[in-house]
Structures are given as C-alpha cells and as structure tokens.
Write a protein that binds this DNA or RNA. Structure first.
Lengths: 93, 93
DNA sequence: TATCTATTTAGAAATATTTCTAAATAGATT
DNA sequence: AATCTATTTAGAAATATTTCTAAATAGATA
C-alpha cells in the first residue's frame, strides 16, 4: 500500500526477476516457479507479496491462475525519487 | 553497489526520512539522530548503510562529520523502473 | 596532558523475512 | 464420485535486520 511496502517488495532480487519475467506477458504460478530454483510454495509467497503491493494482478482460467504486470504502481516510487533526487522532469499525477 | 542494495536501503522508512532531511543541506550525525527517536548508534548504523549504497557522502570538519545527499545514485533505480514499468521517456546513461 | 565531545564499533536481544515440507483447497478431468 | 492438477496455506527452521547498551576511537578544547 505505501512506499515502504513497494520498496521492500522490490528489494528482493527474486521478486524483481518475477516482474521482469512478466514483462513478456501473463504467466501461471507454475511457469514462474519453474524458472527459479525455488519450490512452488516459496514462489507463491513472493507472488502474494507482489500482489499485495499491487505490482501484479491475477486472472483465473480453468485450473490456472495467470499473473500479469501492473506497471501503474511504479508511479509513487518515481515521484519520491524525483523529489529527493532533485529531478524536475517528472509530471505530477 | 547493486540494485538490491539500493532498494533494500530505501525500503526502510527511517532511511528515506534521513535522505529527506539531507535534501535541505548537509547535517551532522548528531543533528540527524536528534530528529529521530533512536540512539546515535542506531542512526550511525543507518548512515553506514546509506553511505555504502552511495546515497550519502561524508566530509569531516573539526569534531564533526557532515553528511550530504548524493542524488546521482538514484539513476540505476530509475532505469530499472522505466524498463519494467514500460515508460520510454527516460534517457539512457 | 587530561578531559570533553561527536561518532562509530562490538555484541547481544528482539524482530522480521525467507524458505522449506506437508497438508489443504478448489476446480478440471476421467 | 473419484482422482488429478495447480496453487495456496500453515507451521517450523534458517537467516537477516534492526535496535539497544556499553565500550572504543579520535579529534578538539581546557
């Protein structure tokens, strides 16, 4: 929900890698899990955090849950960085 | 040094608040510590992490150490966010 | 030189996070 | 209905992080 949550979620390399995988389109939890050396349960845990922070959304189809990237959530982080980073070419919401 | 380190450092609200304080100019460790309900030792620990990640630099003057903001380090984060966030108005280095 | 002041370091306790295995859920297929 | 498949949840173990107190450092002042 807040900036801390977003940052904390992005701090873990695995979660950034999941986000990168989803850049090419929606994937099932299984597909995501099999690209990492982690159990499905662990990947499920990371997906939950990503979902809670709003970085991904899910849609169900048959037996599968497809995860998709939601890029709008990056806005708050950009806004904060531009504020402290002293840049001024970033439009306000 | 890497993106994970930067993100991890920014994930903690206290450290973002320290960065925000430094936006108005260099401050001593003591000045920073007295604006938070934390011991000097704890603030020193956070300053060390911020320094390691390159967000701040220090200069010594007499008995004091002044900490200053180094905003160039935000670039890598911006680059990553623009890549996954699908924005394309951010110049490459 | 002795002491004061600002800050850091060491080490321990408290807390939080990540990962695993095993079990649970729930929808699809036979 | 029984079973299979994809995924999540629960709970525990391993690991990492934050915070504190007490001690150390090191430069400044008396």
């Amino acid at each position: 929900m807040g900036l801390s949550e977003s940052m904390k979620v992005l701090a873990e390399p695995i979660r950034r890698q999941i986000i990168e995988r989803l850049k090419t389109g929606p994937k099932t939890a299984g597909e995501i899990a099999s690209s990492f050396d982690l159990t499905n349960a662990t990947v499920s845990y990371h997906l939950k955090l990503l979902k809670q922070a709003g970085f991904i959304t899910e849609t169900k189809d048959k037996n599968y849950i497809y995860y998709s990237l939601n890029s709008t959530v990056f806005e708050d982080i950009l806004t904060w960085i531009y504020q402290v980073g002293g840049k001024n070419d970033h439009a306000e919401k």
